[in-house]
Simulated scan of single mutants.
Amino acid sequence: MARTIAEIQNEILSEKDKQSSLSGLTDSKAAIWKLWINIVATAIWVHEKIVEKNALISRPHTLNWYREQALNFHYGISLDPDSSNGISLIWKEGAYQFDTTGLTDTEIENSKIIKHCAVSEIDLETVLKPKKEIEEIFSDYFHNKVGVVFIKVATVTDDKISRIDVPNELFAFKEYIAKIKDAGNQVYITSDQGDNLKLSLNVYIDPLSIFINPKDIGYYQLKSLNRDLKPEELIKLEEYETALEAEPLDPRNGSLILKNEEFPVLNAIKDHLKNIEFNGAFVKTYLVDAIQKAEGIKIPILTKIETAWATNPSDEPKALADVTKIEYFIPNAGYFDMDLFQVEINYIPYTFYRDKQ
Rank of each mutant, 00 (worst) to 15 (best):
L25V: 10
S28D: 15
A30P: 11
A31Q: 05
A31I: 09
A31G: 00
I32A: 10
I32R: 13
W33D: 01
K34C: 11
K34S: 14
L35A: 14
L35H: 12
L35N: 13
L35D: 10
W36C: 04
N38W: 14
N38T: 12
I39G: 04
I39E: 02
V40N: 02
V40E: 05
A41R: 02
T42D: 05
A43M: 13
A43H: 11
A43E: 15
V46P: 01
V46K: 10
V46M: 07
H47W: 10
H47L: 11
E48P: 08
E48T: 10
K49E: 07
K49I: 14
I50W: 02
K53C: 04
N54C: 07
N54I: 03
A55N: 09
A55R: 11
I57F: 07
S58V: 03
S58I: 03
S58M: 05
R59G: 09
P60G: 06
P60L: 10
P60D: 07
T62G: 07
L63K: 06
R67V: 00
E68I: 10
Q69V: 09
A70T: 03
L71Q: 04
L71A: 03
N72D: 04
F73A: 10
Y75L: 06
Y75M: 05
G76V: 04
G76W: 01
I77N: 03
I77T: 09
I77M: 15
I77F: 15
L79D: 05
L79G: 06
P81Q: 04
P81L: 09
P81D: 08
D82G: 12
D82V: 07
D82M: 11
N85M: 08
N85A: 14
N85K: 13
G86H: 03
G86S: 04
I87W: 00
S88R: 12
L89N: 05
I90W: 09
I90S: 05
I90R: 12
W91G: 02
K92R: 15
K92L: 11
E93P: 00
G94V: 07
G94T: 01
G94Y: 12
Y96A: 06
Q97L: 11
Q97N: 08
D99T: 08
D99W: 04
T100R: 06
T100H: 01
T100S: 02
T101Q: 08
T101I: 07
G102Y: 04
G102V: 01
L103F: 02
T104L: 02
D105G: 12
D105F: 13
D105Q: 11
T106I: 15
T106H: 12
E107W: 07
I108M: 05
I108C: 02
I108P: 04
E109S: 11
E109V: 11
N110T: 09
N110G: 07
S111A: 04
S111W: 03
K112F: 02
K112E: 01
K112G: 00
K112S: 03
I113K: 01
I114C: 03
K115M: 08
H116S: 00
V119F: 03
E121K: 06
E121Y: 05
I122V: 13
D123L: 09
D123G: 12
L124V: 15
L124E: 13
E125A: 14
E125S: 14
T126W: 11
V127A: 02
L128I: 07
L128Y: 07
K129H: 09
P130T: 10
K131H: 14
K131A: 13
K131Y: 15
K132Q: 12
K132Y: 13
K132P: 13
E133L: 12
E135D: 11
E135F: 14
E136I: 13
